[in-house]
């Protein structure tokens, strides 16, 4: 076997991905080729450097809790929910998959194991991560409140989902969001903005409308509301 051929096989050889016949051929070549031995030494040195520098990370406890909370009580719905999600599903097929999960979570009040919030009105945390279809999302919220006046709603926004909560934000037709926001606030809806997103996007906290409050991490807040305060999760 020639050096050029062996060179092509060195990486799979080192990674233990070569079949026996080729392993034997490479090893026969290595017996007598200092250049290819040096190439192997180079790759191995780098692998050692990587494993020394890059230990696999462990998931933080808050993430573990948040992921587990997503699936707590998401058993199959016993009956269809009355909430109209058609607007969102039609408008944003990309997030339809996530909405289904939210829909499953929404079915929780009908499950025997769920008792959170039913006496004082259902508690819903809406998770808003995208900047599209905000108008439709706000309309969904309003419809939801119309259907269940006792509903307690917290909207947690992060990523592009925060944009409509910034001062002077307007919809695609140039209409300011602030009117709809104030109306929803007056009906008890709370808006919480992820400070991590603001930091990442280098947005000053003063740019957030006073109708919304800041929380350190949107995801952690969603997890906390579900776990500690019995909120049901719904994705917008």
């Amino acid at each position: 076997m020639k050096c050029t051929e062996v060179n092509r096989l060195l990486n799979p050889y080192i990674d233990g991905e070569l079949d026996l016949q080729n392993v034997l051929a490479v090893e026969a070549h290595l017996q007598e080729c200092p250049r290819c031995n040096a190439a192997i030494a180079g790759i191995q040195t780098m692998r050692t450097a990587i494993s020394r520098a890059c230990e696999p990370a462990k998931a933080p406890l808050r993430l573990r809790e948040a992921v587990q909370a997503q699936f707590a009580g998401t058993a199959a719905p016993r009956q269809a929910t009355s909430l109209s999600l058609g607007v969102c599903l039609a408008a944003a097929p990309g997030i339809a998959a996530l909405l289904i999960v939210g829909w499953l979570a929404l079915a929780q009040p009908w499950n025997a194991q769920s008792n959170a919030g039913t006496a004082q009105g259902t508690r819903i945390v809406y998770h808003l991560a995208g900047g599209n279809h905000v108008k439709a999302n706000l309309r969904t919220l309003k419809n939801h409140l119309d259907a269940e006046p006792n509903l307690q709603v917290v909207v947690v926004a992060h990523s592009d989902g925060i944009n409509f909560l910034l001062q002077g934000a307007k919809d695609t037709e140039g209409q300011p969001y602030i009117g709809a926001l104030r109306e929803l606030r007056a009906r008890g809806v709370e808006f919480r903005v992820c400070t991590n997103t603001l930091t990442r996007q280098q947005i000053d906290t003063r740019a957030v409308v006073p109708e919304a409050v800041l929380v350190p991490s949107g995801i952690a807040e969603i997890s906390r509301l579900q776990k500690r305060e019995g909120y049901t999760y719904l994705r917008l």
């Binding site: 997503q70 998401t74 990442r200 991490s217």
Partner: peptide, 20 residues
């Protein structure tokens, strides 16, 4: 390449994994 984004991505991924 960002710890906060990584956490968000993992949560999204688990939601999608559940769905599919």
């Amino acid at each position: 390449k960002n710890d906060g984004l990584a956490e968000d991505a993992v949560q999204e991924a688990y939601l999608r994994a559940w769905r599919f």
